[in-house]
Simulated assay, not measured.
Amino acid sequence: MPATYNQCLLYNQLVMPYLDAWMWQKELQTQRVKNPDLNDVLILLEHPPVYTLGKGASSEFIKFDLNESSHEVHRIERGGEITYHCPGQLVGYPILNLARHNQDLHWYLRQLEEVLIRVLAVYKLQGKRIPSLTGVWLEDRKVAAIGIKVSRWITMHGFSLNVCPDMKGFERIVPCGISDKSVASLAEWIPGITCGEVKHHIARCFGEVFDLELIEQSLSGIHQS
């Protein structure tokens, strides 16, 4: 087994248009389907305001006319319902070869939750899981969403953590199709928190949970916004 199997390439991007990140993920996944020996990857970034719908998402959770949206709307191949991304929300896209980790999608979802629960613990916040639902909650309010797509055990899409976003965009949808629980951001518990500081904690906790050494990569020439 090549020594690089315990290494993960880390791309810390600032803000990237959703379509650029989507294309980038698909390229990385396709490359690893063809050549499973390539390194795992973790992309951390923020998006301009955008709504995304999972492949089976229902229109009943959308409170606006899709043809007259002031923000981009994209139906994508991940699981789950509609969600919202915007600056101040950290998005993580792991491109992992689960054949090196555990070929079990439920295990993978729980591991992503564990990364985020550990990040919250850094701030002495107790993130929780809710049985039968995917994501992480603080005081019964959802602060992190997860939606994935896996092809031949290579992952794409991933998780989002509300750090300090403008939450108004969530008012126009039923986030993740969960009508009886509201969404929240970490800034409500930790005023002044920034995505910049949280990124470092996500990278460290991700490495711990997946037993990977993260190697930060240069962004020069790579899908810069």
Rank of each mutant, 00 (worst) to 15 (best):
E81A: 01
V150Y: 07
A203V: 08
F206Q: 03
L45H: 00
W137S: 01
E139V: 01
L109G: 00
V198G: 00
Q89F: 04
R75V: 06
Y5T: 12
I193Y: 09
V198L: 02
H201S: 05
F206A: 08
E72F: 11
L109N: 05
D140L: 00
K142W: 10
K149R: 15
F210Q: 09
L219P: 13
L44T: 00
L161Y: 06
Q25G: 04
H47N: 07
L138V: 10
R118G: 09
F61Q: 00
S220F: 15
G54L: 03
Q89D: 10
D104H: 06
H74L: 13
D104Y: 10
R32K: 14
S59K: 02
S132H: 14
A184I: 15
E113H: 06
L125K: 14
N102S: 03
L28Y: 04
F61Y: 14
E197T: 05
I82T: 08
G147H: 07
N12Q: 14
I130M: 09
G177T: 13
I62Q: 05
R118D: 14
G127V: 07
H106M: 04
P191K: 11
K168Y: 09
G158L: 10
L109Q: 04
S69C: 12
L138D: 05
H85W: 12
G207C: 09
F170P: 01
K26Y: 06
S225M: 12
C164H: 13
Y18H: 08
T134W: 11
S179H: 05
I62S: 07
G80N: 05
P17T: 12
W107N: 00
R100K: 10
Q217V: 13
K128T: 15
